[in-house]
């Protein structure tokens, strides 16, 4: 559905590194892992067509995404950004409603159906009773959930989410990951930039490791989530534990390595 073809993302003053070639198929959940500054967000934005690649291409259903109209892209692909603080005052419902924007023609206004979709998305993220609150009065976690609700009301086939679990308490982290898994089951393709290895291990089928020098590798989660590779990626000793068939990684510190 969304494919990278010899893609090199454009990060100023960095070597081109490994050209990326992979395809995100419906139902797959991809996790992008890498230390700070490795270019996870740039990769996500490039995949969404919001940035031009240095070379290569991103194809959405076989067409170069740069050649598609933004509106066509937005009808299929939603992006959840990391910072949602920017912008003008707006209410929670207004914000969720803008997810419907790609589907309404300029001379038209939102139908009752659009309103119902946005309200359902808010309900799903437990924001239903905050409809008329201004975004500026929300907590960080509430804003994050609102960003996901906005993407949800966009009814996308592809989700590109940058650290979707940021600011969320444990309950809502699980809730969000379940929601995304449910979307995957409904044949959506999902790409997540993650910094939590354990979330990646628990929820992703495919993993892409992005190194600060531009090198990258990707494969099934089972093969990629090997302790030595991850230690090299983060330049940090790790211990892996298996419990109930699920793998967990714990960072080690020289102070408490007993």
């Amino acid at each position: 559905m969304l494919a990278a073809k010899n893609l090199i993302i454009d990060i100023p003053e960095r070597n081109s590194g490994t050209p990326l070639s992979f395809e995100i198929k419906p139902g797959e959940t991809w996790g992008v892992l890498g230390p700070n500054g490795a270019g996870k967000t740039t990769l996500l934005h490039t995949l969404a067509g919001l940035r031009k690649p240095r070379s290569g291409a991103v194809e959405l259903a076989g067409t170069d995404i740069q050649l598609l109209r933004r509106k066509q892209v937005a009808q299929q692909l939603a992006v959840v950004f990391q910072n949602n603080g920017e912008g003008f005052p707006a209410t929670v419902l207004e914000t969720a409603m803008i997810g419907r924007h790609p589907f309404i023609s300029p001379w038209d206004i939102e139908s009752a159906e659009d309103l119902a979709i946005a309200r359902a998305a808010l309900q799903k993220l437990e924001l239903g009773n905050l409809e008329h609150r201004l975004i500026s009065t929300l907590s960080g976690g509430e804003r994050q959930r609102l960003a996901i609700a906005t993407a949800l009301s966009q009814t996308p086939k592809l989700w590109l989410a940058d650290e979707p679990s940021n600011h969320l308490d444990l309950k809502h982290q699980v809730q969000i990951m379940e929601l995304l898994a449910e979307q995957a089951t409904g044949n959506c393709g999902i790409v997540l930039c993650l910094h939590d290895l354990n979330l990646a291990a628990q929820w992703c089928d495919k993993i892409l490791l992005l190194y600060p020098n531009g090198d990258a590798c990707w494969d099934d989660a089972d093969t990629m989530l090997a302790t030595p590779a991850l230690e090299k990626l983060y330049n940090q000793p790790l211990r892996s534990i298996v419990s109930d068939g699920q793998r967990y990684f714990i960072p080690l510190s020289s102070r408490n390595s007993g």
């Binding site: 934005h45 969404a48 919001l50 109209r69 933004r70 509106k71 066509q72 892209v73 937005a74 009808q75 692909l77 939603a78 992006v79 950004f81 920017e86 912008g87 003008f88 707006a90 207004e94 914000t95 803008i98 997810g99 924007h101 790609p102 309404i104 300029p106 001379w107 206004i109 966009q154």
Partner: peptide, 22 residues
């Protein structure tokens, strides 16, 4: 007819682009 696009743009350039605004 641009009113709704303006609403989306008010949420930021990136967000607006992601929602189909040129």
């Amino acid at each position: 007819p641009l009113g709704r696009s303006l609403n989306v743009l008010a949420r930021g350039q990136m967000q607006a682009a992601a929602l189909g605004v040129s």
